[in-house]
């Protein structure tokens, strides 16, 4: 169970990024979590609520986009989603295909409401 550590890393990253938008209120933070990231989206959402409780970030919604494992066929250039660990190309049947994604643990986006600023001082964002 390392989703608490991950949630804290998301919060640290958010605090850093938020300084770029002193005039805005951050409404949502978007993550991309790959099938092979070893991170459980449900547990991460639960931990997110715990780490933001009682902070200025309490109202920030966490949106998690699930990224399935993808492979690319070097013979026919087809990129496809791997289902049930079957990595053969669904088009040409090539058995040896190349990993093309699905291990991400990325901060993908922020949604900023420009009209409702947080108070951002020299010490960073002020917490309650």
């Amino acid at each position: 169970m390392h989703e608490m550590s991950i949630a804290n890393s998301v919060l640290e990253a958010l605090e850093k990024e938020a300084r770029r938008f002193p005039q805005g209120r951050i409404a949502k933070v978007g993550l991309r979590v790959g099938e092979l990231a070893g991170v459980d989206p449900g547990a991460l959402s639960f931990c997110w609520e715990a780490v933001v409780r009682g902070t200025n970030w309490e109202a920030v919604e966490l949106e998690i986009e699930y990224s399935p494992r993808r492979h690319r066929c070097e013979r026919c250039a087809r990129e496809f989603v791997v289902k049930d660990f079957d990595i053969a190309c669904p088009d040409c049947g090539e058995a040896h295909t190349v990993f093309a994604g699905g291990d991400e643990l990325d901060l993908a986006f922020l949604e900023v409401d420009e009209d409702e600023p947080y108070r951002v001082g020299k010490e960073g964002v002020e917490r309650k």
């Binding site: 998301v10 990253a13 901060l107 986006f109 949604e111 900023v112």
Partner: peptide
């Protein structure tokens, strides 16, 4: 509401 793309690793400090 503005959506701003970030595309950075969550664990970039560890990385």
């Amino acid at each position: 509401m503005n959506r701003i793309g970030l595309e950075r690793k969550v664990l970039n400090e560890n990385d």
